[in-house]
Design a protein around this nucleic acid. Structure first.
Lengths: 173, 173
DNA sequence: CGCGTTAGTTCATCCATTGAACTAATAAGG
DNA sequence: CCTTATTAGTTCAATGGATGAACTAACGCG
């Protein structure tokens, strides 16, 4: 079983201020999760971001691509690709909104709903693995914090990009 | 101030299960933070990841590039580039370890220490902006959760990649 | 009508990250 | 010693996610 492990390649390294550094932590967590999800997604034959898109649209039928982009923190150009791909595979429908034909009103097809239903279990399982060390109460707290962060950073981005509308306030629960 | 905002481009979208979905949240948070940090780093003339590298090496002088990679969740090939760049700019030194000449023992140069000291304030300020909505106690809790996640996912990755040594246990504080 | 704005598309580009093949140094074992 | 396996680090070509800018189409407001 190997020799020295002087610095214990991972556990023994002192993080110091990085323990409270969001850019570092978000990047590291993201890297880990991507690595683990790679196989998982491959097994599902799922594109990058596909699951998330199906999920949001399922919950917000009729939403626009811009709203989707804002919600998922993608650029609209990236959304176009994602959404066209899902449409081509028959999982969602893009109808021009009757009231304003610039909008694409997005909604899941029957196949899309079915696919999401089938996949969502697996996602929950995968998620549970990530969360093994946390009790139910802790998970709730963790996600509460992450969602507050998500909202706060979203607010900031709205302001930075000078997006006139809808700065409003996101309701804090 | 714009018209309909029917779906309130951002605030009004229902997230549902995504509120507790780590892949989604980490990606979204990462995207926000990257966007905000872009200007910030440009102003410092800092490369991607430079600050984090300086920080860890400062705290763990003599560490190897492999340890650095494991800590920051980079591949070693990426670390090589980062570290060579910082060496070229005079911020750190790579001496072959005397005891095992395969290792590069990394440590900050005087200029590197100075640079890090100068920068770390700004990072803290930047971080504080991200954390505005949180009280001191909440920040501590948030980071406690994130670090536990970081360690847990790190453990998992060690196992997945069959890394023999050092699976051990990272001390839970 | 004509001007400004917004939703979405397209595409070329960038940059971070990866994988694989390579060198050099060490450890282990006969 | 000499051979073989392993580990640290390097190099580079390739991938892929994300971006920016230029474009079309539709709307709103005078």
């Amino acid at each position: 079983m190997a020799g020295e492990v002087q610095n214990a390649s991972f556990a023994g390294v002192e993080l110091g201020p990085l323990r409270e550094n969001l850019p570092f932590l978000t990047r590291a967590l993201r890297a880990y999760i991507r690595a683990e999800n790679a196989d998982f997604y491959a097994a599902l034959d799922a594109e990058q971001g596909e699951i998330v898109v199906l999920s949001v649209i399922g919950l917000n039928p009729g939403m626009s691509q811009n709203d989707l982009a804002a919600t998922l923190v993608f650029k609209k150009s990236a959304i176009t690709k994602l959404v066209k791909d899902l449409e081509a595979r028959g999982y969602l429908e893009r109808a021009k909104s009757a009231s304003d034909r610039r909008f694409n009103a997005l909604q899941l097809s029957a196949a899309g709903q079915e696919r999401y239903a089938r996949i969502s279990d697996l996602i929950a399982q995968q998620n549970a693995v990530f969360l093994e060390p946390f009790s139910t109460a802790e998970r709730a707290e963790l996600f509460n914090y992450l969602n507050r962060l998500y909202r706060h950073l979203g607010q900031r981005q709205l302001q930075r990009t000078g997006n006139s509308s809808a700065i409003a306030e996101s309701r804090d629960d």
